[in-house]
Design a protein around this nucleic acid. Structure first.
Lengths: 254, 254
DNA sequence: GTCTCTGTTTCACATAGCGGAACAGCGGAT
DNA sequence: ATCCGCTGTTCCGCTATGTGAAACAGAGAC
């Protein structure tokens, strides 16, 4: 708790908090019963009942044969975030092409609230579920994002979030991170050498709009055994640059 | 109100309703200010303020330079619905392949609460935004879904929702619909001849799991000028059957 | 400098959400 | 058949909680 350094009280609407507590519990396990939800949330049975009645009435939750499920109506809302910028939509297609052409896993990542969010992906690693959030310093795409920031912003990021060691290879020293970001700015691509998961390597490049606004990072990753140096530092970066360039072109001319 | 034939009172949690009223208003237009949201929702300024404070605290809404936006954290929840069945994920890839190979717009549609929901799509028609809902009887994919139901279920559907005329070609006669569904069951594919939008034709086929559970409908659509009879009734159905079959195979063997 | 927009906070009030407990409905076990 | 244990549903009294109006603050615009 106190590690966050936040002085935010839990102000606001506590009823709304309960609603989302229930939704998050449903996200964790669907098709579950009311009494099961009371167990997981610690709320009283009548409260859960009343909230679920509201949510199903609004269509955000669906009941089917005694179990409750997240409804597709939430998808409609969240899709707004995903299509906020046309560049995000353009990136979607490029992620797919990348996945198909390389036969590796591909992602498009965007920053929100100091974390990396998977916005598009190709390949079925449960870990890269869309909407999932990861610490920026442990991902190739995340380092690309950090490399876009100035020193002060990076310093602030480190101060707020720290540099947690996800694996033995994760960068935990601010100075090392600083040098790494410099290298990324110079090269134009970032590499991840098992800093997020053992045995996993990746590459990522920044994506810009035609007027050079930064959009997010386009990345490819896979097993270290296959991601040898020439593949990682030659072939993939140039392919990624091509795709990032195509996004820019798409945005410029329909 | 009374047209729904529902006797549902607005029971439940009205505070939660307010929260989602605000979220829906944000979906409609992002980057908007608090006072603007009070205008749109009709709620008091302090209420909107308090709700937004809660939502930003929880991360479902994000504030950036004076404007409020839907946060990606909602995406994480709603993605649960989208990946509920592995078949949905398999369909995602096939939709993309369909779009690339035909150079037409492609969709994967699922039924929820008597409506067709776009779960995956290829192509950038604003009308087919993911999560958007359409009446089943006006879509090729929707008719594929209706064709899976028995006569009683279809009758009930008609009684509850009616058969609204979206265009001049929309099927509005229950008997005509009945015959149409029979034809679809027989042929194994459905055709949409400008029943949802003038100038737009489409084809769709059902998708099943290896143990013949119905998952949803895979469809392709485009301008009537290009969707001539042989293309619509020969080429596309066989391509769609192939893709639907590949989904089944994917589910059966990794 | 004032004026006019914002966002933020305060406050008194009634309402709306709360949890406990009672009721109903179902299925399995005996 | 009967009981028992488990659900979901409803009722109810209480108080916490969300509410709107109004006051306050802060930032531009002019």
């Amino acid at each position: 708790m106190s590690t966050h350094g936040e002085d935010e009280t839990d102000a606001g609407v506590s009823t709304t908090r309960k609603t989302f507590e229930i939704l998050e519990a449903l996200k964790a396990e669907e098709g579950v019963t009311i009494t099961e939800l009371t167990r997981r949330t610690g709320l009283s049975k009548s409260t859960v009942y009343r909230h679920l009645a509201t949510l199903t009435d609004l269509g955000y939750v669906v009941e089917r044969d005694g179990g409750y499920y997240i409804g597709f109506r939430l998808l409609e809302i969240s899709e707004q975030a995903r299509t906020r910028k046309t560049g995000y939509t353009a990136a979607k297609r490029k992620v797919f092409e990348l996945g198909q052409e390389t036969d590796e896993r591909a992602v498009f990542i965007v920053e929100e609230e100091g974390e990396g969010v998977y916005v598009h992906r190709y390949g079925s690693l449960a870990d890269t579920m869309i909407g999932k959030r990861r610490p920026l310093h442990s991902l190739a795409s995340g380092k690309v994002i950090l490399a876009e920031w100035n020193d002060d912003a990076v310093r602030e990021f480190v101060a707020e979030n720290g540099l947690e060691a996800i694996t033995d290879n994760t960068i935990t020293d601010p100075d090392v991170l600083h040098d790494e970001l410099d290298r990324i700015r110079e090269r134009g691509y970032a590499v991840n050498n098992q800093e997020h998961m053992d045995g996993l390597r990746g590459v990522a490049v920044p994506v810009y709009t035609p007027d050079d606004e930064f959009l997010g990072a386009l990345g490819v990753f896979g097993p270290a055994s296959r991601f040898k140096d020439d593949y990682l530092h030659e072939e993939l970066p140039s392919l990624l640059w091509d795709k990032a360039g195509e996004i820019k072109v798409t945005l410029a001319y329909g």
